[in-house]
Design a protein around this nucleic acid. Structure first.
Lengths: 141, 141
DNA sequence: ACTAAATATATTGTATACAATCAAATTGTT
DNA sequence: AACAATTTGATTGTATACAATATATTTAGT
């Protein structure tokens, strides 16, 4: 039987390495926009819905406040987002896009296509990969 | 047509999130062995071949010295590995397993199976995921 | 109204990642 | 041999990740 502890037989390692690989690939394009991949993800979520709490962002990106708070502060210092305490509930911090943050959407538009081309996967492979990784995420709690 | 910038349509985000998810899952089991997931990966490689340079580890794990050097020093301080300059080439640092690092293999053996069960993917899904992520890694240069 | 529990974010501490730079050692060429 | 180019790790600086804890606020139960 195969050795359970052989690096080459594990699924988790290529997944882990491929994830880093793609992040680096994105970063190559994002550096022109002075963005990192996680910052770009925050913008994706905000472009879909202008105003969201830290909590809502964390739910969608599966990131906790220990990651998001400093990340959002860096984005605020780059004038990409506003951070403001909710008047209704003082515990909530509302994140909204600045003009600059909004404007970046056009420049970001071509990036997913560029990344896809670099990866060289077929359409079926993309769909399969998306389906399986989403299935993994559904088993969390 | 679909919005290219919708989070839910991107492949890269579920891959990124699933990778973090699996790392956390591994860490839940590895914390008993006082290991992190990247440290466990280093041990995987060393269990296959007792003695390797930092460079060889980096080639296999696709990590650079900026990550590996401090990681290996932490592992050295936990008495899991030895770090020693090569006598043949003084630039090379040879990493070898300590007795303790060797002994951990038995305790680590059941972990991949436990993780697999938690993920709840079929055998076909595992194989497909492995194949696609490995394909992604082959496009690096 | 009072107070315990729950919620939302922030902080702290540790551990990756990785780009960029540096330094030492080795190799290749003349 | 002399020396430029290459190789190998280490270092520095910045940016995630995330567990654990802390703090402020709100909600719920009596």
């Amino acid at each position: 039987m195969t050795d359970l502890l052989k690096l080459d037989d594990q699924v988790c390692f290529p997944l882990y390495a491929a994830s880093r690989e793609i992040t680096q690939l994105y970063n190559q394009f994002l550096v022109e926009l002075d963005l990192t991949y996680p910052q770009y993800l925050v913008l994706l979520v905000l472009w879909e819905q202008q105003n969201q709490s830290v909590n809502q962002l964390g739910d969608k990106l599966l990131l906790d406040s220990g990651t998001l708070t400093p990340l959002l502060k860096r984005m605020e210092s780059k004038d990409l987002v506003h951070r403001q305490r909710s008047a209704v509930d003082e515990r909530v911090v509302e994140i909204s896009l600045t003009y600059k943050g909004n404007q970046l959407k056009d420049k970001a538009e071509p990036i997913p296509t560029l990344v896809s081309k670099h990866l060289g996967l077929t359409v079926e492979e993309f769909e399969t990969l998306k389906a399986i990784t989403k299935k993994i995420l559904h088993y969390r709690k």
